[in-house]
Design a protein around this nucleic acid. Structure first.
Length: 287
DNA sequence: AAGAGGCCCTGATAGC
DNA sequence: TGCTATCAGGGCCTCT
């Protein structure tokens, strides 16, 4: 599920819940995520206060009181759940602290606070935790990623010159985190629909006006998703990351064979595999 | 050096 | 019903 907007929604809820709270205990049930959870993971977290939860691209950055950073990427299927100590556990009848049996499959990490705990659940284990020792290393790591769509660095000059002499199609570039970071497969299709550009279009064929459209629509699509997710999440007091139904109103994604939503367009939404990822687009209004 | 392709993993669903 | 095949929203590694 998680592209930039979903991760931002998780960040907001998580920050609200754990900011200025002290970690009492950490339980690692399965350290074999995409990256193996480091042996110093528990040591660095236990007894530390959470300063705040930040985000860059699709990464959550949990800032700790010992000047270290706990990085969390949700991969494809990672979710965070909040379990309150005095409320009936949603997933298990076992005790809050011990839960000897897996309450639910794939609850890999539990972080305990005074009156609640957060659980990291991830069936496919494509997500990962990482401990970053200081801000320099963190900055260096993120400097390898492209700007977020909202950043002023993501402007027409940047995009247009980046595309020069490149051979890939535009859909590929929107997914390339070195070019722009935070966009995933769903929103890439949505952005191209709003821009009237078909996903297979080679970037060398795009003019500055096209670049401008892509930039503005990237921001629009992501902002909108954050806004809708933000309003949905209030219904989920105990679960963060399950973002409700806000992803249901796509223009093209998962709408293969359905009519184009653009007023007066008679097009039909197509599905095509581009570089092993499914792409959706209107066969008429996207050129 | 850019770009294509494979791979990490489990679960849901489609098709027979 | 029960099997197998396909596909899933990410990103890294390798090979050419």
């Amino acid at each position: 599920m998680p592209e930039l907007p979903e991760v931002e929604i998780v960040r907001q809820s998580l920050d609200k819940k754990i900011k200025q709270k002290k970690v009492k205990k950490v339980l690692v049930r399965n350290r074999n995520l995409r990256l193996k959870i480091p042996s110093n993971f528990i040591k660095y977290l236990e007894g530390k206060k959470i300063i705040e939860v930040k985000r860059f691209s699709k990464y959550l950055i949990i800032c700790l009181s010992n000047q270290k950073y706990c990085l969390l990427h949700l991969g494809m299927s990672g979710t965070i759940h909040i379990i309150n100590k005095y409320k009936k556990n949603l997933y298990t009848n076992t005790s809050f602290y011990s839960s000897p049996l897996l309450p639910k499959k794939h609850n890999h990490v539990e972080i305990f606070f005074e009156n609640f705990k957060i659980i990291y659940n991830d069936p496919r284990r494509f997500g990962f935790f990482e401990i970053i020792n200081d801000i320099k290393i963190l900055k260096k790591k993120f400097s390898k990623l492209g700007p977020e769509p909202f950043h002023k660095k993501f402007n027409v000059n940047y995009v247009f010159s980046y595309f020069k002499r490149k051979k890939k199609n535009i859909k590929n570039f929107l997914l390339d985190q070195h070019f722009v970071s935070g966009i995933g497969n769903i929103y890439a299709s949505e952005i191209l629909f709003l821009s009237n550009i078909k996903p297979e279009k080679n970037v060398t064929l795009l003019n500055k006006k096209d670049c401008k459209k892509i930039i503005l629509n990237s921001r629009k699509v992501l902002r909108n998703a954050i806004k809708k997710g933000g309003s949905t999440i209030r219904d989920f007091k105990n679960i963060v990351g399950k973002s409700g139904n806000f992803q249901k109103n796509f223009n093209v994604y998962d709408r293969k064979g359905l009519n184009c939503k653009r007023f007066s367009c008679k097009g039909v939404i197509q599905k095509k595999i581009i570089s092993n990822r499914s792409s959706f687009f209107c066969n008429i209004c996207q050129k």
